[in-house]
């Protein structure tokens, strides 16, 4: 397969995919860490329900998630209408919408990875920090967070790699606008629907493949480094 030079439109799709996925991870990382922490260490009624809700995007068809977002954030939706009225923000059909849809879809992936990271932290170390004079939040920041950081990083990288390929939710909520919401998978889809677009589709598919692979390798590399840094062999 030859890579050749990309047209400006194709470059746009690559850049947009990277930017959308990065923003999606940035938006969902902090809430995901908080939710994962609640799910592992929290003792409250409704924990099982929260767990199910978080995992919903994994099992619900992406188109349905996109439709749900459209209903909520559309210009006449319960969130979209006030946003437009009070802040003049119109989300639908923008790259922010693509990022939001991607964030919702990849949220369970991050939560799962962070959760594994927290479960690897010995509660005995947290208890020890408390006896040494650290309060709950202090303990979380200085002991729990550094020790779960491999999980956070792994979650972020996997979510980023998966986010590059989000299709159904993005096309439903943000539509397929070249240069604005047409990410890599959308561009590939468009190319396959265009007569003579096979070469373009192949090039973009190759890039998709390479980016995803690079992401996963990077995740593995970071995980190993972190484990060594944390003294777990």
């Amino acid at each position: 397969m030859t890579m050749g030079w990309l047209s400006p439109e194709e470059w746009d799709a690559v850049r947009l995919s990277l930017s959308v996925s990065l923003r999606a991870v940035a938006v969902s990382l902090v809430p995901a860490v908080f939710i994962a922490w609640l799910l592992v260490r929290g003792r409250f009624p409704g924990r099982v329900l929260l767990d199910a809700l978080v995992h919903l995007p994994l099992v619900v068809p992406p188109v349905v998630v996109g439709w749900g977002l459209l209903m909520l954030f559309g210009v006449r939706g319960p969130i979209g209408a006030p946003l437009l009225e009070w802040f003049g923000v119109r989300l639908v059909f923008t790259s922010e919408a693509a990022a939001l849809a991607t964030a919702v879809m990849s949220f369970p992936l991050i939560v799962r990875a962070v959760r594994l990271g927290i479960e690897a932290v010995d509660p005995g170390l947290e208890a020890t920090a408390r006896t040494l004079g650290a309060g709950r939040f202090d303990t979380f920041l200085t002991v729990t967070l550094p020790l779960m950081s491999p999980g956070i990083l792994a979650g972020a990288v996997v979510a980023f790699a998966a986010g590059l390929g989000e299709f159904g939710a993005v096309i439903t909520f943000a539509s397929n606008i070249p240069g604005e919401t047409q990410t890599l998978p959308l561009a590939i889809y468009t190319a396959t629907q265009t007569p003579g677009g096979d070469a373009i589709a192949a090039r973009l598919a190759g890039i998709s493949f390479a980016l995803a692979l690079a992401g996963l390798l990077l995740a593995e590399l970071i995980a190993r480094r972190m484990h060594r840094l944390l003294g777990r062999g």
Partner: peptide, 13 residues
């Protein structure tokens, strides 16, 4: 209360 546990529990990071 300073506590010394059986397994030392040093912070590995």
């Amino acid at each position: 209360c300073g506590v010394v546990f059986q397994e030392a529990r040093l912070f590995p990071h």
